[in-house]
């Protein structure tokens, strides 16, 4: 029997993997993929709550969340192209020009 708790645990595990990916990985592409994972883990949690509560609000938010994630990653990739043009690298650690 799959209950709400199972979905929430799955969503929590994916969310944690996503946060760890953003914080630990060096390549900006992997960072953007991890961000996508975070948004999708939240979608699982929202859809599970929506089914469990039998209201549609959560499902509506899932649809908007997918759109938002797509928009953010699209802009992320556009900026990434410019980062590559200016530095010939997509390593996060190269982004350290500004400091006092």
């Amino acid at each position: 029997m799959v209950t709400l708790t199972h979905f929430l645990i799955l969503s929590f595990i994916l969310f944690s993997i996503g946060v760890a990916g953003v914080l630990l990985r060096r390549s900006i592409i992997i960072v953007l993929m991890s961000l996508e994972l975070i948004f999708n883990s939240v979608n699982i949690s929202l859809a599970a709550f929506s089914y469990y509560l039998q209201t549609l609000n959560g499902t509506v938010l899932v649809v908007f969340n997918i759109t938002v994630a797509a928009a953010e990653v699209a802009i992320g990739l556009a900026i990434l192209v410019n980062v590559y043009r200016s530095r010939k690298s997509i390593n996060v650690e190269e982004l350290n020009d500004m400091r006092y």
Partner: peptide
């Protein structure tokens, strides 16, 4: 949005 999902 994760927080919103728990509040919801």
């Amino acid at each position: 949005v994760y927080g919103i999902s728990f509040i919801y």
